[in-house]
Design a protein around this nucleic acid. Structure first.
Lengths: 303, 303
DNA sequence: GGCAACCGTTAAGCTGTCCTACATGCTCGA
DNA sequence: TCGAGCATGTAGGACAGCTTAACGGTTGCC
């Protein structure tokens, strides 16, 4: 029933002691202030000011409402400072989903750098499938997701920015005939039996297969495992060779060696967030922290 | 910078989950809500809602502001209930000034009755000169004052209502020649030396002197004291007779007797308060409590 | 895959609010 | 008693804010 704006007018009158002074303070004419007070008194159902001599003095109800107007004004100021804190990145929270092989070598150091820049922001991490992560970004369940994904693949409301290119490396059994080479080409592995580390076929493996097709062959997927450490085990056992993203190597299995692959651009690592979220300075900090951590972990900068 | 009204619109959207539902809830069209949100986003300097699919979802800043809007709304509700409490007389405070002879026999029982009716109201009492009390009522320093005063004497912004007529009584030394009479007339005391209980001459004594002049004589003010108990002591010592308001008798001095005076209307006892203050139910209760206490104390009802 | 329904947004137009300018009633000081 | 100062009415105009109508985009159904 009461109008907040009019309450502020009342407060100005009560604190300044006169209608004229309050009007001058508010940048209005005394008439405007008087009219607002008249409406407020009708809303309140009580006299709020009483004329005394040439001026006015507040009644008990007027003093009461003026005090509460002070509280409301203070509450609004709290909201504004909270918003400013959020915009400045000094508060708030950030939830990030990431994919398995980025966990140890990338997310942990990136989070440390982020914490140094924004001590007041609480970061929530969770490992998840890339597809799931993107859905949750689109639904607003999380703020950002680190995914392997072509940044050109648009998703409505979600903007993905590539933060690194994770190069593929050839993983060979120790003592393999190609282990002596410093660098391999994809075609060198054409005749070998392959061990995969992704099942079902996801964006990483698809990218490798596409590169193989571009190189003119289709690899023999002899063994299909679900994760890269397992695949390294199969390679060490001599069941074949593997093509593994550098980040997914982790600490290499002692029975294998890895060599750079001259071909294949690697897999794109993207940071995905809702379009509005990209305005936050916290996300910018997170992005640069992730870029730095990825570079340290062996990925190359995105163009 | 932020507008409280628009914050409430944002809150409706965030809680209801869609612009259309919020508009329906607020009684507006979705267009109006959308426009208000656009202005609010410009004021906040940040996106507050992000489109997702056919609907919208709040950003971090939007959720933050919606929560604060909730707090502000709650604060406003507190103000409204506080005002309602005040108007209903269940809260607030009341400061009352009274004159000396009304203290014990009138104010104390009246306050007890008032407390029973309004347990939540804090009453502040203070003894003061009638003239001072009225000034403080006019200045708004106190809410009400119990004074001896002709209610016809207008004072700007202050409304005085007579609550009783305090009759004058003749006070004689025990064994005085007139002590045997049941009732005296003012003229009976014409030849006696008088003891006064008010100095300098105030409204009570002036009223008595006026009545004497109307009765055709001017009393011999032999002894002038500053208060009525002292005057009773002088009367008991045989220095003269006195004309004392009934309320001011208190517990009569053992050396004196008091007799009703057939003439003289008594002194008017008024409750004075600012005009706006008379709208409060607490003051109405106080008035009736004072009337009852005055009647009990021996004063007669005002016409 | 095309179509319809739904949602949010935008543009144009209008009504109501709110402020200004001016005049009045009132009080206080000279 | 007159003039200054303050609060308050009244008439008028500017602006904010709502409504209607139209558009772009998305979802779900056929």
């Amino acid at each position: 029933m009461l109008d907040v704006r009019r309450l502020q007018v009342l407060r100005a009158v009560v604190t300044s002691g006169s209608v004229t002074a309050a009007a001058q303070h508010l940048g209005y004419t005394p008439s405007a202030v008087s009219q607002q007070l008249g409406v407020l008194e009708r809303q309140a159902g009580t006299r709020l000011l009483a004329r005394v001599g040439r001026g006015v003095r507040p009644t008990a109800a007027g003093r009461l409402l003026a005090e509460h107007a002070e509280l409301i004004s203070r509450q609004l100021a709290v909201a504004e400072t909270a918003l400013a804190e959020l915009r400045a990145g000094r508060s708030g929270s950030l939830t990030l989903r990431y994919f398995a092989s980025a966990g140890g070598p990338v997310v942990a150091p990136a989070l440390a750098a982020f914490r140094a820049a924004h001590p007041g922001v609480r970061v929530t991490l969770r490992l998840d499938d890339p597809g799931e992560s993107l859905d949750e970004v689109a639904r607003g369940a999380v703020d950002a997701a680190l995914v392997v994904r072509d940044p050109g693949d648009r998703m409505p409301g979600v903007e993905s920015r590539q933060v690194a290119q994770d190069p593929f490396r050839a993983v060979l059994p120790r003592g393999h005939r190609l282990a002596g080479r410093e660098e391999l080409a994809l075609a060198d592995l054409a005749g070998e039996p392959w061990v995969t580390g992704e099942w079902p076929v996801g964006p990483c493996l698809r990218r490798v297969l596409d590169a193989c097709a571009a190189a003119g062959f289709s690899p023999d997927l002899a063994v299909e495992s679900e994760d890269y450490p397992t695949a390294q085990g199969f390679v060490a056992a001599g069941l074949g060779v593997a093509v593994v993203p550098a980040l997914a190597l982790g600490t290499p299995h002692p029975g294998v060696v890895s060599r750079p692959l001259s071909q294949g651009p690697g897999r794109p690592v993207c940071l995905a967030a809702a379009e509005a979220t990209w305005e936050l300075p916290t996300l910018a900090t997170l992005e640069s922290a992730l870029r730095g951590a990825l570079r340290e972990a062996g990925a190359v900068d995105a163009c």
